[in-house]
Simulated assay, not measured.
Amino acid sequence: MPAQPPDKTCASCGRRIEWRKKWARSWDEVKYCGSACRSRKVRPVDEQLSETILSLLAARAAGATICPSEAARAVAAGSEPDPEAWRDLMEPARRAARRLVDSGEVEITQGGKVVDPSTAKGPIRVRRVR
């Protein structure tokens, strides 16, 4: 049995892509974990959320954290008059944080401990890599 290839991260959601036997011949071309991510890709608002997360962290002390909702609120405040529009940006903000983890720029924590972004459930915090 051949060795399993190295892990990959989805270009859209930032989660770990689980190797599947059907991808054995095309593993190098696999970029997305599924059809939903393949159709969503990375939109301009996703890039804006990533930039906002980094700018919010840059304005904080070295070990400080932010909640993804802070980035969602900042992006929504600049584009939508609806005060609740930020809620629709929560999952995109979490995806942006996971992509930043993959690039090595931030860490995702729960209860002050670094967690795997692919399996983290519930409230998370984002901080710069120490």
Rank of each mutant, 00 (worst) to 15 (best):
R38I: 01
D88L: 09
R16L: 14
W23N: 11
L89G: 02
L56S: 03
A3D: 11
Q4H: 03
E70V: 00
I17C: 01
V30C: 06
L49V: 02
E47Y: 03
S12P: 02
W86H: 11
R60I: 00
E51S: 15
S26F: 01
R94N: 08
D82M: 05
D46M: 06
R38K: 15
P6S: 09
T119D: 15
R94H: 07
G14A: 09
P81C: 01
A59R: 10
G78D: 09
C67R: 13
V106E: 10
K121Y: 03
C10H: 07
A11Y: 06
L56V: 05
A61F: 02
S26R: 09
R128Q: 13
Y32D: 09
L56F: 02
P44K: 07
I66W: 06
I124K: 03
A72H: 02
V115I: 13
A36I: 07
G78Q: 12
L54M: 15
A3C: 02
Q110N: 09
C13P: 10
L57A: 08
P44T: 06
I124Y: 05
D82V: 03
V101K: 11
E18M: 07
A59M: 06
K113A: 15
L89T: 04
A24C: 00
A85E: 04
G111E: 12
G104V: 13
A64C: 01
E51V: 10
R25C: 00
C33F: 03
R99A: 10
V101N: 10
A96Q: 06
S26W: 00
S79Y: 05
M1Q: 06
A93L: 01
D116W: 13
E105I: 09
W19S: 03
S39G: 08
D46F: 05
E80Q: 07
S35M: 04
R130K: 12
E80P: 00
D88G: 13
A3S: 11
D46Q: 04
D88I: 00
E80W: 07
V75S: 02
T9D: 05
A72M: 02
K113S: 15
A3W: 04
K21F: 10
V75P: 03
S35E: 13
G63Q: 13
Y32Q: 08
L49N: 01
K121G: 01
E29Y: 02
K8H: 02
W86D: 05
R127N: 05
L57E: 07
E29W: 03
P5F: 05
D28W: 00
R25L: 11
S55F: 09
Y32R: 07
R98C: 12
S39A: 15
V42H: 00
T52H: 05
T9W: 09
E80N: 08
A59H: 04
M1G: 12
V75I: 08
A24L: 08
K8A: 01
D88K: 10
A77M: 08
A96D: 05
A97V: 10
E70S: 04
V106H: 11
T119E: 15
A64Q: 08
R40K: 07
V30T: 05
A59K: 11
I17M: 08
E91D: 10
S35D: 13
A74R: 15
S103K: 14
G104L: 13
P92M: 06
D7N: 05
R40V: 00
L49S: 03
W19M: 04
A71Y: 02
V129L: 14
S79N: 11
